[in-house]
Amino acid sequence: MMVPAGHAVEPSLSIRGLSKTYAGGVQALNNVNINVAPGEFLVILGPSGAGKSTLLRCVNRLVEPSAGEIFHNGAKITGRRRGLRAIRRQFGMVFQQFNLVKRLSVLTNVLTGRLAYRSIWRSLVYSFPEADKCIAIECLARVNMDHKAFQRADTLSGGEQQRVAIARALAQQPKVILADEPVASLDPKIARQVLSYLREAAQELGITVLCNLHQVEYAREFAERVVGMSHGSVVFEGSSLELTDDILHRIYYREPGEEEKEEA
């Protein structure tokens, strides 16, 4: 089970012994180890509350891990506070609630993906260089939203907003995209469309994708490889073809502490 594509080459992302306990004492992650190959579309599957969201947020340090390390292309990205912006710039993020700034235009929303590359003085007057606009529009074209570039974000439907959010992540020219339940608020037809756009763009640009999902059918359809999570631990790692009923039961219905019994 542990011989997926990732091992031949150096992993794009290597998560080692990652744990996170929140201030309230809730343990969200417990010694998570995952390797992600460059350009891979990895789905992290699990029920809500399994720690998927915390895992992604540890990668771009929206959440500080309690223990463990993360390496990106061999460089350690956890621990130091310095250079955090440069680290985050390499990771695009897509959210369940899209998180667009609703009163700004679609184009400006995508342009915010370029902010980390630009000085604060230019940002102060809400102005972007021509080169950034080119990048932003191209990213919009990739998700087929360039025809609505000048509309306000709140005039778009949910699926369209998520496509714009993907364009914003692409505009960062990231190495990795972290997608946190990107289709949980969308109906099935739109959800498949959005996931297709995400996979296609990532493939063309060679971007690694970590995508949280809780629906098994999308994981079967889109994933190259699946990591199953339950109660903060990885309980499965393998191809989507290996997702048997037994394994799904382990991901979705396991009680905390059951794992040890099974292994014993």
Binding site: L107, E130, I137, E138, A141, D146
Partner: peptide, 21 residues
């Protein structure tokens, strides 16, 4: 989509953008 279509889209939207600006 090919690179050529992106170029057309970018040129088109850039022109519109400068006009709007």
């Amino acid at each position: 989509m090919s690179a050529a279509t992106f170029e057309a889209a970018v040129a088109n939207a850039l022109a519109l953008e400068s006009e709007r600006r």
